[in-house]
Structure formats: C-alpha cells, structure tokens
C-alpha cells in the first residue's frame, strides 16, 4: 500500500505517475474515491499547521532582537509582505494574508515532490479551486471599489457603452482567467512529475543518486517559479480590477 504514496518506490518495470485509489465509499448513490492525492494534501496541510502553530508560539514570546527560528519567520513574513507591497502598492494591505497563505501552501505542495510525495498540485482538483478563489476575489473587489456603471463601461471597453457588441468577448476573457491560471500551475507540476516518473520507471537500473539534479530543477526551481507566477498574476489581476481608486480612503471608510 505504501508504494502508492511514494512516486519513486514503484515496483515492477513500469512508468507510474497516476493518482491511485485508497478507498471508496457510497454517497447519495455515487461512488466517491479517496485518492492518494487527498492523502498527500493532508500530509502537506498537517505539516504546515504544525509549522504555523510552532511559529505562533515562538512569536508569543518574541524578543526585540530576533534570533534562531524567529529570525527565519521574520524573513519569510518580510519577503511576502514586501512582494505584495511592491506589486499592489497601497491597494495590497488587505491581501497580504491571502497571498502569503497561498504562497506558502503552493510552494510547499510543489516541493513536496522532493520529499517523495506525489505533489498535490499535480491534481487538477487542487489547482482549480485556487483559480476559482482568485476569480471570486477579482470580481468581488471589482464590485467593491467600482460603480456598476464603470464596470459596464469597462466590459464594453473598446466600443462605447451603449453598444455592447464586445461584451461576450470580454466575458470570455474574464472566465478564461481562472482556467488558464489553474491549468498553468497544474501542467507545470504535472510535467515535472511525469519526467521524474519516466526517469525512475524506465531507467530503474541506473537511477541512483543523479536524479537528485533533476529534482532540483523540476521540483525546487520550477515549483518556486510557478508559485511566484501564480501569486504575481493573482495580485496583478486583483490590482487591475480595483483600478485607480483611492483605496486608503475607501478602506478607512469601511472601518
């Protein structure tokens, strides 16, 4: 059973990077499968929970001059806050928590291939919800910071607002955003997974030691780049949807 969770430990001379069934049950007449990607996702979430709980405890007795683990945590938080601040400017104040969370989650999911798991982000069921959350955030914030008239004008944009010929094309463009975001992340991680499975499956006799180099490229480099790209695109889309509104004023009005 264990070999199903570990990508590298496939017995027999075959290539295997598929998602496997762990067990199934009946729900409203449908058979629902709990798969290895649920298990890997659970492992990732538990490890991150432990990390956050330990980090929270460290910060409860934080010292003025940081040392050790607190130093490390402060570097992470400062990097994430700086990234959001640089991309979104003053508009990014409310999004630091969300962007930081998905950054850490996607990064750890991607590099979990390094630890022998099948990366959870190599399952379209994990990346599509991330894309949908981004889609909802874009449009909720669009309606929060712009009047309906401005949004209508924007949706008809190359043509005047009384002639909405271009509206369907703009709507297709809006709905393509979550699909392309999630497919980009999914296909990148999946291609790395497939390459590693090919190396371990077809070159089983000689695959000792040197695939570590490939892991550095496919898991660490590619995973980090894709995480960065997902977060940057999310921030860019949200920031475009908000527009040039004076956000600090609006945010203080909301309070």
């Amino acid at each position: 059973m264990l070999q199903n969770y570990l990508l590298a430990a496939d017995p027999g001379d075959k290539v295997d990077f598929m998602i496997h069934e762990v067990f199934s049950y009946q729900l409203f007449g449908q058979t629902v499968y709990i798969t290895t990607s649920h298990v890997c996702l659970l492992i990732v979430v538990l490890v991150l929970c432990a990390f956050f709980i330990i980090g929270g405890n460290v910060f409860k007795k934080a010292t003025e001059i940081p040392s050790g683990f607190q130093n490390f945590l402060e570097i992470i938080v400062e990097f994430l806050d700086g990234m959001v601040g640089k991309t979104m400017g003053s508009k990014g104040r409310g999004f630091r928590n969300y962007i930081g969370t998905i950054f850490i989650f996607i990064l750890f999911s991607n590099i979990s291939g390094l630890l022998g798991l099948r990366p959870p982000t190599a399952d379209y069921g994990v990346t599509l919800p991330l894309g949908i959350v981004t889609f909802l955030l874009i449009h909720i914030n669009e309606f929060r910071f712009n009047s309906v008239k401005d949004i209508w004008k924007d949706k008809c944009s190359p043509l005047p607002p009384w002639f909405p010929l271009w509206l369907p094309i703009n709507l297709i463009g809006d709905f393509a955003v979550p699909v392309s975001l999630s497919l980009r992340l999914f296909a990148n991680v999946l291609s790395g997974t497939v390459m590693m499975a090919l190396v371990y499956g077809l070159l089983q006799k000689v695959a000792y030691g040197w695939p570590a180099v490939l892991h550095v490229y496919f898991d660490l480099f590619s995973g980090a780049i894709q995480t960065y790209v997902f977060c940057m695109l999310t921030m860019t889309y949200i920031s475009n949807a908000i527009g040039d509104v004076e956000v600090t004023k609006k945010l203080s009005e909301d309070k």
Binding site: L183, R184, A187, N188, S191, I225, Q226, V229, M232, L233
Partner: peptide, 12 residues
Amino acid sequence: LLGQAVAETTGL
C-alpha cells in the same frame, strides 16, 4: 519571469 510564464501556457 511573469511574461515567460504567461507565454509558456500555450505550450503547456
């Protein structure tokens, strides 16, 4: 990197 990642989508 952002531009390259967007350009990569068609290949993916």
